[in-house]
């Protein structure tokens, strides 16, 4: 579904070249659940941003369903993010002055569709994630777990083909983490391709089909089997 070919993301800082992602070749199939693991600073987030079209590689290429992202214009890349990709962050990144419902609706602004459609779709996804009575709340009035579920709703509302989650459980306690991972697992079973970044090997091992490990920007080995698929 999405594959990278020797993709690089180098930063030039004065005389120094920081190889945040270096020659990573990775293929993710439809309906896979992949966990990217590695120590801090190993380039996991950078790789995820490249895959999600938030960042552009300095070398190598990324191909999504036959389209090479490198060849897309900035606008084309925005469309890729708007239509095909859902993204979650460790710190949720909800807009604090908007209600849960408004935050979710925001994801539909760049997808066409009327006000009414946006409202129905946002409402229905929030209801599905058990937030029916939290829709009018602002992020500050929600618990961490609820905030992450709102963020998940926002990522899912446009029915993306791919879901990227950067440390989705990083700011959550055990219970909430389990809850979110269970939700992701469910969604994956319903056909959603998921790539998460985590340094929690336990979580990665439990839910993902496959783990990829990064070390200093490079992919070190493909630890192919997780338990996610059998749970």
């Amino acid at each position: 579904m999405i594959r990278t070919n020797k993709v690089c993301r180098h930063y030039i800082r004065g005389p120094q070249i920081i190889k945040a992602v270096d020659e990573v070749s990775l293929a993710i199939e439809e309906q896979e659940f992949v966990a990217v693991v590695g120590s801090s600073g190993s380039g996991k987030s950078t790789l995820l941003n490249l895959l999600a079209g938030l960042d552009s590689p300095t070398a190598g290429s990324i191909e999504f369903r036959g389209t090479t992202l490198n060849n897309l214009s900035r606008r084309g890349l925005s469309q890729y993010r708007a239509k095909s990709v859902g993204i979650m962050f460790q710190s949720f990144n909800l807009i604090y002055h908007r209600t849960a419902l408004e935050n979710v609706e925001l994801a539909l602004y760049f997808n066409g569709g009327s006000r009414g459609e946006r409202r129905t779709q946002a409402t229905s996804i929030l209801e599905r994630l058990g937030l029916a009575d939290r829709m009018g709340h602002r992020p500050a009035d929600l618990s961490g777990g609820e905030q992450q579920r709102v963020a998940l709703a926002r990522a899912l509302v446009k029915k993306p083909a791919l879901l990227f989650a950067d440390e989705p459980t990083g700011n959550l306690d055990q219970d909430n983490a389990t809850q979110i991972m269970a939700l992701l697992s469910d969604l994956n079973r319903q056909g959603l391709t998921i790539v998460i970044v985590t340094h929690d090997l336990e979580i990665a091992g439990e839910y993902a089909h496959r783990m990829v490990r990064m070390h200093y920007g490079r992919l070190v080995d493909h630890q192919s089997e997780g338990h996610g698929g059998e749970a």
Binding site: A52, L54, R74, R75, L77, S78, Q79, R81, A82, K83, I87, N93, L94, I95, L106, A107, Y109, F110, N111, R154, K158
Partner: peptide, 16 residues
């Protein structure tokens, strides 16, 4: 800035 980042991650392009 963060809000702009969020909007861009949701598919807003420069023009928006």
């Amino acid at each position: 800035r963060r809000e702009i980042g969020v909007l861009k991650s949701l598919g807003a392009d420069d023009r928006h």
